[in-house]
Each structure stands twice: as C-alpha cells, then as structure tokens.
Nucleic acid binder design. Structure first.
Length: 411
RNA sequence: GCGGGUGUCGCCAAGUGGUUAAGGCCCCGGAUUGUGGUUCCGGUAUUCGUGGGUUCGAUCCCCACCACCCGCCCCA
C-alpha cells in the first residue's frame, strides 16, 4: 500500500503555483503599500495561548485543536498546539518583543498555514492557509475603516469586485453586558423550546445564540418582542459614534456594506466592530474573510491595554473563486544533442535571468522540438551546424519564424 | 459529532454475475535518423477504493472499513 496525504490536507502542485504566487504577491503589495510589515510566527505555540487567546467557550478550542504533549511523561513535558488561527500568536509576539515601542499604530500582515481538526468538506480543510492583517494601538474608527479598506482592496486586486461586506458592532464591554442581559431576559420564557446548543449558549455566551441555524430558535428570534430587543441598540454613545464614524468613512470610500445585526463572530475576543466578507460562489462555507476589533486581547494575554483590529481570509476559499493563472512558459528550450555545450549554454542564459530547460536523454531532434513547443516560447537550436559555424538558431514557436543569432547577449 | 451521496488507468469516463474490462485526453514510440504545435499508426488497468462474505465463478450481490463530495454544526 502506498501512503496517502492525511485527511483534510492537500498538496499544492506546480500547475496551481502561479495562482498561489499571485495571491501571495498581491497580498504583499497591497498590505505593504498600506504600511503593514510581514510577521511570521511559529506554527505551534503553548496550548495555553489559544485557551486564553481564542477563548475556551469556542468550538475551535473545545474540539478542533491539534494538541500534543511533548517532552515525554516527565515533569518538563508541556502541551503544545498547532495554531488554529493567527491572531493569538501575533499578539503573543507583539507582547514578547515589546512591539508597542514602535509608535502606534503597529501594523502586521501574514500568509501562513493553520490547523483545525474538523470534518473536511468544500472550503474546509484540516490544514489550510490564512492571509490577514493585525493592527495594534489604534482605537480610532478610521483604523477600522483602514482595515476594511485594505481587505477590500486586496480582494479587488484579485478581481473580486462583487463580494458583500457585512458589518455589525458588538459594543464595548459595558454595552455588550447590557445587550446580553436584555436578550437573556426576553428569551427566558422560550428557553425550553430552544435547541441544546442555545441552552448552553444562553449561559456562556448568549450573543452566539443569534447565529443559530436551528429553525425553532430562528422563529423565536423572529417574534415581535424578541426582534425588538435584538434590533434595539444597546450600544453606548461612544460605541455608536465609533460605528457611525466608521460607516461614514466607508460611505465616502464607496465601499458597499450591509449592516447585519445578527452577525456575531465565533471567537470570544471580539468587541465593537465585526465584519465578514462573503461570496455566493462558495456553497455553504461562504465567508472568505472574517475580522473585527479585539481591544481587550493584548491585556488579557499579559500586555499593556492596547486596542487592536484585524482580519483573516481563507486562501483556499479565495483560490476557489478567483480566475486561475497559468504557469509561465520557459523563455527557451534548448534543442541539441551536444549535452556539454547545452548545459553550459543553459547556465549562461539562466544567469541572465532567462527561464531555460533542455533534454537530458538525447531524444530525437523532432521530439525535442515537440517538447519545446509545449513548454517554451522559443526553441534555441544548437546543432552540429550551429556549433561549427558558431551561431544559434532561435525559433519562435508561436509564429514559426526562425533567425540566426551569433552572440547570446543579443537574446 | 450527525444525516445523504459517490469510489473502474495520471484525468474524464462506458460496462456486465462468467476469462479480451469500451472510448477520449495526457504520456511514450513510429511514419518524419536537423524543424514542433495538424494528421496517421502503434503502446500503456493480470484489474475495477481496501478487507471479508455469498457463489462453480464477482468489477458488477451482501457486510465492514477507508477516502472523497454534499448538507448540519462551526468557521477562513
């Protein structure tokens, strides 16, 4: 039996590489143009980081983490986890390296593999990639606008112009509490009818109930008096002003967005602004981007109180909906039976930054040319005549036109 | 974790309880021993996801397992 790739993992083959490279290059360009610097943190971290950073009421922490005990059974053994998302790791690095000493805001971007032990399906793998940004030290609404703008600009750079930005505000600690209590109050009479998950959420994280897809639960949220509470703003004056200023910026930037009061993200650390960007071409895993503000997280992980905001996008989901790019052809395929001349010529041309390849097996001239026409723009013919008379025949494989060249510097 | 579906060559696929398992693409070789992309000819599955069972006989029937897909859930 041969060994296959692990469930929920995928090889990225050369034929897909041009598209992947484009995604990464566009990310680098758009994010760095906006002042974000690349940060690369380790694939594994202390399990404790995610328990505290992502939140132990989340599904990610409760059932989806790749956690290992390393160091054997002795006292020094420790629990590590393959990162399920990148915000916790970046926050850890931010604190550990005192990155707050750069004058704020501090802006970072990343493109990296993540790991979640979930049931694979379309748009969901166990190893997948996220590209995203994190910004620290800016509490102003313009920071929210800038982060959303950056996400939209990146998506536009990939030719994705028709995606929907959904936007909501969860409020700060204070209004979040008031909202939570009001929802608990109005739902209380119906609690018995709700699904088990919602009964649990009612205690732990009532806002997550609004995300429930269960029909009976949804019907309860549709009820007049419940709806009134859900749609009523429990947002304090500061938070409201923050949100209104943000939407003002988005309006002036002509960014299309839709306010979705039901949008509550699954990670515990969010407050105030949250947003998702969705595509209709992805089936049930429709979110290509999710993000929001997490003003309390740095402090929770032991740093100074620091406002922060960021987003993450699923690279495989982006890959699924963008126009694919074909790998570039070689500049030259050398057609020759003189291998020692060929390898030297290949080296010279490669050092001149040309993409060059050639045949190793002494195949027939016509076979080499056939190969050339498949993989290269030009055939560089170096036969006995050419070597004797010191020239190269360059054949344009698109037009069929062939010319003599006496010096490779002319290429 | 729970439902539903699928599984024949690298890819797309036809097929039937009984010994040649179609076809197309790709790949390889030849026609054409220095001029390709067109054309023509030829070659490539001791085998039908894996392991059992039923049967004189199974790729096709039954069971289990595995993998993938589609929902739920969750999220990127």
């Amino acid at each position: 039996m041969t060994i296959k790739a692990q469930r929920g993992t995928k090889d990225i083959l050369p034929e897909e590489s041009a598209t992947w490279q484009m995604i990464r290059e566009n990310a680098q360009k758009v994010f760095q143009n906006a002042g974000f610097g690349e940060i690369s943190t380790p694939v594994f971290e202390a399990t404790e980081l995610f328990n505290r950073g992502v939140g132990d009421s989340t599904d990610i922490v409760n059932k989806e983490m790749y956690t290992f005990c390393v160091g054997g059974a002795d006292k020094n053994s420790s629990s590590i986890t393959l990162r399920p998302e990148n915000t916790a790791g970046v926050v850890r690095a931010y604190i550990e390296h005192n990155l707050n000493r750069i004058s704020p805001p501090q802006k970072f971007w990343y493109f990296a593999p993540m790991f979640r032990y979930e049931r694979p399906q379309a748009g969901r793998q166990r190893q997948f990639h996220q590209v995203g940004v994190e910004m620290f030290g800016a509490s102003e609404p313009i920071a929210d606008a800038e982060v959303i703008l950056t996400a939209v600009e990146f998506l536009n750079s990939l030719g994705l112009n028709d995606l929907t930005v959904e936007l909501n505000t969860l409020g700060c600690k204070n209004c979040k509490n008031a909202y939570r209590e009001a929802i608990k109050e109005v739902i209380k009479p119906y609690l018995d009818e709700m699904c088990d998950d919602c009964k649990m959420r009612y205690e732990k994280n009532p806002l997550r109930m609004l995300d429930c897809k269960n029909d009976t639960c949804q019907k309860i949220f549709e009820k007049e008096e419940v709806k009134k509470v859900i749609l009523k703003d429990y947002i304090c004056d500061d938070c409201r002003e923050h949100f209104e200023t943000l939407t003002g910026y988005l309006n002036s930037l002509n960014i299309n967005y839709k306010i979705n009061k039901m949008l509550v993200r699954g990670l515990d650390y969010y407050n105030r602004t949250v947003f998702e960007i969705k595509s209709e071409n992805l089936g049930s895993q429709s979110a290509v981007c999710g993000g929001g503000r997490y003003d309390g997280l740095v402090e929770m992980l032991g740093g100074q109180p620091t406002p922060a905001i960021g987003f993450a996008m699923g690279v495989e989901r982006l890959y699924a909906i963008i126009n694919k790019k074909d790998p570039e052809k070689l500049d030259y395929y050398i057609v020759s039976t003189n291998t020692s001349e060929t390898i030297k010529l290949a080296r010279s041309l490669r050092n001149k930054n040309k993409k060059v390849d050639y045949d190793f097996q002494g195949k027939k001239f016509s076979k080499q040319l056939e190969k050339a026409s498949k993989v290269a723009n030009f055939a560089l013919i170096l036969g006995d005549d050419e070597i004797e008379q010191k020239f190269y025949s360059i054949k344009n494989l698109t037009t069929g036109e062939q010319v003599k060249v006496f010096n490779i510097d002319e290429l």
